[in-house]
Design a protein around this nucleic acid. Sequence first.
DNA 1: GTCTATATGGTGATAGAC
DNA 2: GTCTATCACCATATAGAC
Lengths: 214, 214
Amino acid sequence: MAANAGEMTIDTSHMDILSVAADCFEKSGFAATSIDDVARKLGATKGRIYHHFPSKTDLFVAVVRRGMAMCYEVIEPVRQLDLPPLQKLSRMAAAHAKLMIETKHFQRSVWEGVEMHRRAAMTPDQREALEELLKTREGYSALFRRELTAARDNGDLDFENLSVTNQLMFMALNSPIFWYSPRPGETETDINRLVGQIVQFALRGLGASKEFTG
Amino acid sequence: MAANAGEMTIDTSHMDILSVAADCFEKSGFAATSIDDVARKLGATKGRIYHHFPSKTDLFVAVVRRGMAMCYEVIEPVRQLDLPPLQKLSRMAAAHAKLMIETKHFQRSVWEGVEMHRRAAMTPDQREALEELLKTREGYSALFRRELTAARDNGDLDFENLSVTNQLMFMALNSPIFWYSPRPGETETDINRLVGQIVQFALRGLGASKEFTG
DNA sequence: GTCTATATGGTGATAGAC
DNA sequence: GTCTATCACCATATAGAC
């Protein structure tokens, strides 16, 4: 199945470098982040990074791959539940949105990778390295579209164009990577409430009835 | 009034340079765009650009300012209509979303400017140059929040947190700058239908009743 | 107002010591 | 595996001719 072909397992090697790199890419973006920036934040020098990653592009791709693996991992158990489409979609959406909040620095790079590809603003080596990941991303998106379609066929959702709707839904679910920042003293409950608002907005937007979305 | 203080009028000078610069910034982002790129696309050399804009940052800021001026211009007539809050909000949202589609290249730079500011990923001169624009942006956002609040007080909308909701709404309305691309043979009617889907998604998300959103 | 140099600084990447 | 040079290149910005 296409979805399984695109699945990813988590590679735990060099997590320290990846995590710091994700922070840097989140803060300044790929182009404006230098390898020296990452090294400095690591308390090391370039040599360490270039020993493990052949190029800046490869480092970035590793961050993106890691972020996407997290997505698959968090969605997988929900996806296997035996639930009506709208309820499954709701759970998947919540898991996704919560992950965006919790792993914002990685997910920003995932976003930028998708953007680079969409705008074709890449050198040939970057393109090749990202190509595989974007197929995986497409498979991930398809998991959601499947439930969207099923729920619409059920009469539980009401929308016009699947592709536009899918974009709008992911836009809402991904949005915390742009505006969320943790507050001092914030609790798990606070986060869950935030996730609730995001999912409610998205599901209502998709035309779910008030009884369902509260 | 704060909103008026933030209003902008359109400066029509050097529109050729600004338009080409917006194209480049849209395609590659601020950091990855070189002045030579812009010049080449203009069919000129750096000299021409540096004669009119003292630095790359100033060129970028001019593009952002221009994009925001377009927002104010397109919203102003709608804002002055004497309508119930939800209906005014709906018209404002449609005008905004349509502008995002029609001036995507400029609006991408506006977005990137806001992002640079939010992430504090700027040199001091960039920060100073963008500061003014972000106050203007805040005033623009306030125009929408005013209607959001009024409509909620009316009982026409139903949402929890104003600030989160405002983010989610703008995310949906802005989203075409990321995924829209013009199709061959696309008509004005096609665009309007697309805008309709976006606005419907956003208003439903905000908790507008089905009678209103169709 | 626009072009052709050119100065200057930073960045990706490599080589070789430890 | 990590560090310290160092190279080669590219991009911002300037100076001065036309």
